[in-house]
């Protein structure tokens, strides 16, 4: 705008551009988001204060904060799933970041076969949660899965089923989600690596800095913003995402791998306890809101978007 004004004779906008045009242009998006995001959010808040269960209509009515009291004081499953969610998010995001960073550093080098290497390394990124589950169910299958062939060469025992044993199910699910989650970080960090000016490294070379020092003093500081942003986005995404655990373990065995969103889905879809599910959703929103505020603060909302 300032540039246009600085021109001696700014061209007049054409006749049909009225002051109302921007509002007209955002109307479809705004209506869709109001109807299918804002209104559902508000209705979740209002249900959270009610007893609402279509299968038990005689109990329906205003509940005040009963649902929240129940969640925090009487429902051990709520705490279990909350703790598991935190565990899941921290382990997944931590490992994905670590491996993603390492991979990005590797495929950022110049070497023979780099293009192919990148394409292959990044390939699981576009695989859906359900398909990931399908693939890993085939791998973890106790009869014809990978354990059978490992047992053939003397590693482990026949008939091992990592997904139905409570001591291995967490690691098994983590590995499956890592498989498709690592490329996300690798792609983002690689994009940012490429924007580091080469002469910084040349200058460091001249000063005799080792590669390790270059990494900690040039690469890492430069990547800081990208790492913070992608870590937070991914944490929120991993918290919300139910596709993989729903289809891979179904939250089992014995509720071992039920995250809060999965518990909410079960409470509303299977138990039809919409009021209570809405209260749990509200709690999840508060957690997410806190995360997004941290994100907005760190990514300096209001500045030019990158």
């Amino acid at each position: 705008m300032a540039q246009a004004a600085a021109v001696a004779k700014p061209p007049a906008p054409p006749r049909r551009s009225r002051a109302s045009l921007p509002y007209l242009l955002i109307t479809p998006a705004a209506l869709l988001m109001l109807g299918f995001i804002a209104y559902p959010v508000v209705s979740v808040f209002s249900y959270s204060l009610q007893h609402y269960n279509p299968t038990k209509p005689w109990r329906n009515g205003f509940a005040g904060i009963d649902n929240f009291v129940h969640a925090f004081t009487e429902d051990p499953l709520f705490w279990d799933t909350l703790v598991f969610s935190a565990q899941w998010v921290v382990v997944e995001v931590g490992l994905q970041l670590l491996f993603g960073l390492a991979l990005a550093l590797i495929v950022n080098q110049t070497f023979v076969g780099r293009a192919l290497g990148r394409a292959l390394v990044f390939s699981p990124w576009a695989v859906s949660g359900v398909l990931t589950s399908a693939i890993w169910v085939l791998l973890y299958n106790s009869q014809t899965g990978i354990t059978r062939y490992l047992a053939d060469i003397g590693i482990g025992e026949y008939g091992t089923s990592w997904l139905s044993d409570t001591s291995t199910v967490f690691s098994a699910a983590v590995v499956a989600d890592l498989w498709r989650g690592v490329p996300f970080f690798a792609i983002l960090i690689l994009a940012d690596l490429q924007s580091i000016p080469k002469d910084l490294y040349e200058a460091a070379e001249v000063d005799g800095a080792s590669r390790v020092r270059q990494f900690f003093h040039i690469t890492l500081p430069h990547l800081k913003d990208a790492i913070i942003l992608s870590t937070l986005l991914r944490a929120v995404w991993e918290f919300n995402n139910v596709d993989l655990l729903y289809t891979l373990t179904g939250g089992g065995p014995a509720g071992e791998t039920t995250t809060l969103p999965l518990y909410i889905a079960n409470t509303s879809v299977d138990a039809h306890n919409f009021g209570y599910a809405s209260a749990l959703t509200t709690v999840a929103f508060v957690i997410l809101l806190f995360c997004s505020m941290v994100h907005l603060r760190l990514s300096k909302f209001g500045g030019e978007s990158k």
Partner: peptide
């Protein structure tokens, strides 16, 4: 940040 998964019932 609003997860579709948490809005299944109202939707």
């Amino acid at each position: 940040f609003v997860p579709g998964a948490l809005l299944l019932v109202p939707l």
